[in-house]
Write a protein that binds this DNA or RNA. Sequence first.
DNA 1: CGAAGTGTTGACTAAACTCAAGTACTGTGG
DNA 2: CCACAGTACTTGAGTTTAGTCAACACTTCG
Lengths: 252, 252
Amino acid sequence: MQPIMAQNISESCPSTRDVFQTNCGNCRLNTICLPTALQELDLDALDRVIHRTKPLGKNEHVFRENDTFDAIYAIRSGFVKTYRLTDDGKEQVTGFYFPGEIIGLDGISKNKHSVSAKALETAAICEIPFEDAQALSTRFPSMQRHMFSLMSQEIIQDQQLITLLSKNTAEERISSLILSISDRNAARKLSPTSFRLPMSRTDIANHLGLTVETVSRVFGRFQKNGTLEVNNKEITILNIDKLRGHCELEAA
Amino acid sequence: MQPIMAQNISESCPSTRDVFQTNCGNCRLNTICLPTALQELDLDALDRVIHRTKPLGKNEHVFRENDTFDAIYAIRSGFVKTYRLTDDGKEQVTGFYFPGEIIGLDGISKNKHSVSAKALETAAICEIPFEDAQALSTRFPSMQRHMFSLMSQEIIQDQQLITLLSKNTAEERISSLILSISDRNAARKLSPTSFRLPMSRTDIANHLGLTVETVSRVFGRFQKNGTLEVNNKEITILNIDKLRGHCELEAA
DNA sequence: CGAAGTGTTGACTAAACTCAAGTACTGTGG
DNA sequence: CCACAGTACTTGAGTTTAGTCAACACTTCG
């Protein structure tokens, strides 16, 4: 997941007034969200089709599974989780998305969304009607290329998660998630070592194929062996090598 | 994963002579591989850019991880697995691909392949240079739409696998794989209940995040409780409802 | 303040892994 | 065509990790 297009503002000051005044050109997130490839001309064309909707409250949906697909969405501020319902009616979290990232690409082939997307906290979203994105892609090869690129990134990311889930222990899964969040914070010029987790333990557990209890215990172990400092949702990475090094825990 | 474009022939008679005489219009697989959307005109244009390479032998690579990305590939006959190397140098199977399906879409965003693709047995492959695919997409909206659709399908499929790996037991994972193969055989007008698995137990285990022993034991249990008949790689589905019904095993 | 939700901790259990041995295919050379 | 080597698969016994169930603590918020 990542970029393509979005608006300024972002997490620091998402006041409605600012939100509606901004455009892709002056968006704080445009280095991660917009293609560097897009030219000024393209940008204007892009700006003209983007809808900046009013901020979503916590737990409100951007779209739902089986909704008709007609737009893709860039996250301007806040955090979003995507999930699907399994055959037995339980929720399965398929991803967490951060400012500058794009959601909704899954809906293209079937013309309806295959997952639901819900705000983890107040979130501002840019809506790009897919018809328009397609039309722009036909007109501007760089836009087409970028759309392909975005989808390809989503595929790569999903495959990384598959690799993670197929092989790794609870420690490794949680390390990977923390490191992924750290990287994505760095991309937004935020601290890569100290941050607040936007999602609940339950969502983490669900996403990583673990139970809440296991997640809690692993955070405990990481705390104990000096890998992390965990204070509720506030995380500080104390030893990033330990985190990276597949988390071989010494002091059990 | 699925369709887009490919050549006739396929598994039944992949003699080199036939292979090189065929085109997308008369390809046996075109209902699953080609977009119904593509018009005659588009088809000719497509045909002109497709290279039909000589068949790959078992274990030969279509492309390797980190190879420069410059084409996507349609499988005309045979079976392909994709895999990546994990940080600790082990193989992780990310997917199995059947005739009519497309591989290589992961390479777009980074301009290099993020996985390796290797033939599980002799395979005939159609190569579509990505430059050409892009150019066609710009010229023909239906082609662009289909490219988007293909990638979206890959995303959906990966997310399904994520759901599977996050939650399910060994029985459920193996059932899902068997059912997926059954569906894909049905799409190619082959028997959905009786077929030969193209991959080894080791590859199955690896792909599903299990060990070979567990796979073997699950096949044993399925055999014992009348769900499947397993004869080495030959599989017959005896009770598809049992397989679907999350495989609640009675006769342990 | 109290209720509901969220997170932590402990004791016990079960599913899958590891290690190990043995059997059955597959394919090659004699 | 058979013998053999090498690989792939199966089966068993014991271990380990994460899951389950249950109690409790901390937050958050009306």
